[in-house]
């Protein structure tokens, strides 16, 4: 007969352990149900209903603001967007807007003036001829759309930071806020550090030709360190300000910093 050991004489140790475990599973069982409940919560959370609830929206807004702060923190004013050779240019470069090309602003050069407002020394408006006389540079960079597609293009114009210096802008202000001629009135705020980035440009030419209507005639702000929607076209005015004035897409929920 096999040798058996007993905790309590006459009682099989294994059976005793088994029995004592039977008194424990109460907790274990409850934990199992709790586990099941969290599975249910998982389904609930991923259901579409939660998107309509205002608390979820509020939470997402707060996280987006947190993401603005994170992006501003990691933004390196000296980090340059990669540049490409002419052979890499995407042809044709896509027209992209929330309207058809037929509905794009048709700006008359003679009537157009760039209005300058806010915290600047010289608030004079600029005609296109005056702007064309400023020194220009060309850069070939990748435009990345918030939708995920990207395209490489060649943009020529005046670095925005040179222009801001020229008009005596208070570069300690928080934003440069652009307003555009698009229908419904497009606008977008640009944080000052991105505005002063060496590659941020007041663009007057695409691929060496005067900016066509499709790409924002007469002036586009090209910001290779931002997603495409932060690169306003058909710009009519800029305001240097400390106030966050919102933007066409930013107000609808796109992350406001949207840096690259």
């Amino acid at each position: 007969m096999a040798k058996r050991s007993f905790l309590i004489p006459g009682v099989d140790k294994r059976l005793l352990i088994k029995d004592s475990i039977k008194t424990m599973p109460d907790v274990t069982r409850r934990r199992f149900i709790a586990g099941g409940a969290s599975l249910g919560a998982l389904t609930l959370l991923t259901g579409c209903d939660v998107v309509d609830s205002s608390s979820a929206e509020e939470m997402l807004k707060q996280v987006s603001k947190f993401n603005d702060a994170v992006q501003a923190f990691i933004f390196n004013p000296d980090a340059l967007a990669p540049t490409f050779p002419e052979s890499a240019i995407t042809k044709p470069f896509p027209f992209n807007a929330y309207y058809d090309l037929d509905d794009a602003p048709d700006v008359l050069a003679a009537d157009w003036k760039l209005e300058v407002r806010g915290l600047v020394d010289n608030k004079k408006s600029w005609t296109l001829d005056e702007l064309y006389k400023l020194p220009q540079v060309t850069q070939i960079t990748r435009h990345i759309c918030v939708e995920g597609w990207s395209a490489i293009g060649s943009w020529t114009g005046t670095p925005l930071r040179d222009f801001l210096k020229l008009i005596g802008a208070d570069t300690r202000a928080k934003y440069v806020w652009f307003q555009c001629a698009d229908k419904e009135g497009y606008n977008s705020p640009l944080d000052m550090r991105s505005a002063l980035h060496p590659q941020t440009q007041m663009t007057f030419k695409y691929a060496g030709e005067i900016l066509p209507r499709a790409y924002g005639f007469p002036m586009k702000i090209r910001v290779p360190t931002k997603l495409g929607f932060k690169n306003p076209k058909y710009v009519v005015s800029m305001e240097v300000t400390n106030d966050y004035k919102g933007g066409y897409w930013e107000d609808q929920g796109y992350n406001s910093f949207s840096g690259s």
């Binding site: 998107v51 993401n67 918030v146 939708e147 929920g253």
Partner: peptide
């Protein structure tokens, strides 16, 4: 993905989160 599909298909709307691109991005980056 549905905002600019890489391939010739999109995901059924019922299996996406956020309602539109902006909402999807908010969820993704949260």
């Amino acid at each position: 993905y549905n905002a600019s599909p890489l391939f010739a298909f999109t995901f059924p709307r019922e299996y996406t989160l956020g309602g539109w691109l902006g909402g999807g991005l908010l969820w993704h980056f949260a």
